[in-house]
Design a protein around this nucleic acid. Structure first.
Length: 426
RNA sequence: GGAGGGAUGGCAGAGUGGUUGAAUGCACCGGUCUUGAAAACCGGCGUGCCGCAAGGCAUCGGGGGUUCGAAUCCCUCUCCCUCCGCCA
């Protein structure tokens, strides 16, 4: 949620910055008007309450001395009625203001490119290498079939489309990847691992912004009013909801492996081939709670941490800086990591690393005690480190051999009992 | 799932309708003393909102109600604890 004080005090700057994301001035104007209205009502009701409070004290005193209090009581009853009226209106304005603020995205960082869609994104660097081999490159579906590691039809039988089954050495490879990434983050990059619930309540979903807007994209357990998490960001970030952190302990870096569940209502048919877009997938996520002065430096570190996964797996990828209009709603600055999938002949997004400044923390009410003794909002960052299905696709396609086998990256072999290759089943 | 008991400031823990925003202890911060530290003593010490400020309002798990006035009474929800049942 954006800071209303910013709209109050730096209106023109906010309007200009939001215009870069395609937000009309009217929306910000509306927030400002509601805020003015709100403050006026607060002033009115509070001065009436002050009057009532002091009168009530007086009444108590008079009553004790046996004086007549009937007239005073009657007058205060009227004041009470008026207060109730104003409070009702105020509650309405509060709701409206909050809703309006929630519709305003985070302010884009000044240095990012302006643009409304992915065409304005900028490739900031390339990583790893790729050379097309002399033999014919296969796509992951064909490779998977040879290796006997995917079963899509039976996934449909068990659940429905978008719930693939991974088998045998493929399942083991996936498990190895998860282990490897967690170990890398924890042993080398200073993260603490967390194994959170995969199901959360509505407060948590609201805290990170999935609710109320994106309810349709989530799986819901009606009886208990629980939701399946679409990303580990939800439980991990909400871990510190309504919390005050010790400033000396920042940055706090948490990582978690979880399955992710996404209904993705309306996205059927969109790049859904094979493993590319599914309703359930595994992901390792990184979340940082940082001091406001360091958030953008931390973002650069976070991206490098995610990149390290790809580099050490020997994969070719590129780093994209997203333009103002292509970023997620809460992000001030965002980098995407895309892996090259030679079989698909396309770049696959496997990680998105974002700095949310205080936008997410405000909604989450996550603060910290600074060195000056003041309580302030933290800044939050998160990044995938990384998503499994597309990583698997790119890995199979980039590391495939002419004989149909797939070379297992060296760093994964300790997790695979030393196995060097995935071998065709027949 | 059944029965009962709870939820108060960072923690512990008083408080059952009127100077209680909240005793007391611990923790924490500042000071005195000390070569330094400890102890002792003195002072300070929740959060949010409105206001230039003075100050005001709200807040004792959440929501609603009674009342001139609610931490205190009523309703409701959530969570925690104890006992019983069931169970990986």
């Amino acid at each position: 949620m954006i800071d209303i004080k910013k709209i109050r005090d730096e209106f023109d700057e906010v309007v200009a910055a939001e215009a870069r994301r395609g937000v009309e001035k009217e929306r910000i104007e509306k927030a400002r008007e509601l805020d003015t209205k709100r403050r006026q009502l607060v002033g009115e009701t509070e001065s009436l309450k002050a009057k009532r409070n002091s009168a009530s004290k007086e009444i108590g005193k008079i009553a004790k001395e046996g004086g007549d209090i009937a007239a005073a009581k009657e007058e205060m009853r009227k004041v009470g009625d008026r207060i109730a009226e104003i409070d009702k209106e105020l509650a309405q304005v509060d709701v409206e203001l909050r809703e309006t603020l929630l519709m305003i995205p985070n302010l884009p960082a000044p240095e990012i490119p302006t643009g409304m869609d992915s065409s304005a994104n900028k490739v900031v660097r390339m990583g790893g290498e790729w050379k097309d081999p002399s033999y014919k490159i296969l796509d992951h579906m064909t490779i998977g079939e040879k290796l006997g590691i995917f079963d899509f039809p039976r996934g449909v039988k068990l659940t429905g489309t978008g719930f693939p089954i991974i088998l045998g050495q493929g399942a083991k490879l996936q498990r190895a990847l998860i282990q490897y990434m967690l170990d890398l983050h924890c042993q080398k990059q200073g993260y603490t691992e967390m194994l959170p619930p995969f199901v959360v309540n509505s407060d948590s979903m609201t805290g990170t912004g999935q609710l109320p807007k994106f309810a349709e994209d989530l799986y819901h357990c009606q009886i208990d009013d629980f939701w399946l998490i679409p990303t580990a960001e939800v439980p991990v970030t909400n871990y510190y909801r309504d919390d005050i952190l010790d400033g000396k302990k920042l940055p706090i870096k948490l990582t978690a492996y979880t399955p992710c569940f996404r209904r993705e209502a309306g996205s059927a048919g969109k790049m859904t081939r094979g493993m590319l877009r599914v309703h359930q997938f595994d992901k390792v996520e990184m979340v940082n709670f940082v001091h406001p002065d360091t958030s953008f430096e931390q973002l650069e570190i976070l991206v490098k941490e995610a990149e390290e996964v790809l580099t050490t797996l020997g994969l070719h990828f590129r780093v994209l800086q997203l333009c103002s209009g292509d970023m997620g709603f809460s992000a001030a600055k965002c980098y995407d990591l895309e892996l090259w999938a030679p079989g698909e002949q396309q770049w696959l997004e496997v990680s998105s690393c974002s700095c949310f400044t205080d936008y997410q923390a405000r909604r989450l009410n996550c603060r910290f005690k600074d060195a000056d003794g003041k309580t302030k909002l933290v800044h939050t960052l998160n990044g995938s480190g990384v998503a499994l299905p597309r990583l698997m696709v790119a890995l199979l396609e980039q590391h495939q051999n002419e004989d149909g086998s797939v070379t297992i990256p060296e760093v994964l072999r300790p997790y695979m009992n030393g196995q060097e290759k995935l071998l065709p089943v027949k």
